[in-house]
Amino acid sequence: MSEISSANGELRIGVYVCHCGLNIAGTIDCEAVARFAEGLADVVISRDNQYLCSEPGQQLIQDDIREHHLNRVVVASCSPRLHEPTFRRVCSESGLNPYLMEMANLREQCSWVHTNQPREATEKAKDLVKMAVSRARKLQPQEELKVPIIKSTLVIGGGVAGIQAALDLADSGYQVYLVEKKPSVGGIMAQLDKTFPTMDCSI
């Protein structure tokens, strides 16, 4: 497999360290982390920013991708479980394959869990960025597969929630299978007399 690179075959990595207000910057010296990343091989630009997930933050990355011909992006911010889709979109909107973006988790797995150890947390953050950069070097563009989705839903449970979900889906034209263990739908709500806050009947 050949690695995607610029015309002359070099890797061009951009590193972005997010402050997340004070969530990260309150503990970690983000500027120092960004400066450290600058010194890593193949990193052509490294910045720190208040909120990378905000509009201006996203714009900054997109402008850099175009201007500096970045072919890898490392975002050091929160958990990829939260914002990986965001930053993948940021990349693909500016023409970079979204799988060429890598994240380092500086918030959930660093600043928030080492709050009283700013020096150690900053050292760890540098390590996490370094690991992300080395992974980024090896990333390959990927094409996502599209598979058909069956337009029907299984609703397990025929209480008030199950009934409501089933009706909304069925009214919108989707086939619904509502499965209820008991001989009748209705659940606990059917057993109630009046219900708050309207004081009207449950059935």
Binding site: S152, L154, I156
Partner: peptide
């Protein structure tokens, strides 16, 4: 037996 695309879990309490 049947096939569905999505599932809503509403098993209550």
């Amino acid at each position: 037996e049947f096939k569905v695309g999505t599932i809503v879990v509403a098993t209550g309490v």
